[in-house]
Amino acid sequence: MNTIIFRTIAPLIVAIMLIFSVYVCLRGHNEPGGGFIGGLIAASSIAILGMANGAEETRRALRIDPLAIAGFGVFIAGFSGLLSLFTGSPFMTSIWLYLELGQTTVPLSTPMVFDIGVYFVVFGTIAAVALALEGDGEEER
C-alpha cells in the first residue's frame, strides 16, 4: 500500500473527500446527506491518509485527538438542544435564524448545529478507531 503513486495522490483524495464530506453534511437538511454520511466520508478519508502516511503522521496532521473531536461533537449536539431553554421552550426545540448576506439568505439553525455535532462524533470516533488499528501494528514492530 506504500507505493509512491498512492502516497502522492492520497493527500489530494483526502482533501477532496473532506470538502465533499462537509458539503454533504451541510446540504443534508434539504437533499440526501447529513451528519452521519458526512462523518463517515470524512472518517474514510482519514483512514486513507493513515494508510498512506502512517498513523502517527496522520495524527500529527490532525493536531487534535480524534476522540476529542468526537467528544466535542457530543458536546455541541447537546448544547444545541440546550439553546432552546433560553427561549423558554422544551429541550431541543429548534431555533431558526435567517442571515441576509447580500444576495443570498443563509439559514442558521440549531438542527444544523446538531447535525454538525453528529458529523464530528461519527468522524472522530471512526477516525480514532481506524488510526488506532493502523498504528497498532507499527507499535508492535
Binding site: G28, H29, N30, E31, P32, G33, G34, G35, F36, A70, G71, G73, V74, A77, G78, G81, F91, M92, S94, W96, P107, S109, P111, M112, F114, D115, G117, V118, V121, V122, G124, T125
Partner: peptide, 26 residues
C-alpha cells in the same frame, strides 16, 4: 424548514434519540 424528511426526523423531530445514539457511538 427541511426538505429531506429523513434528515429532519433525525436532527429535529427525534433529535433526542439521535443524541443518545451518537453518545453510544462515542
Amino acid at each position: 424548514h427541511g426538505h429531506n424528511i429523513v434528515n429532519v426526523i433525525l436532527v429535529d423531530y427525534r433529535g433526542f434519540d439521535t443524541l443518545g445514539e451518537i453518545s453510544v457511538v462515542m
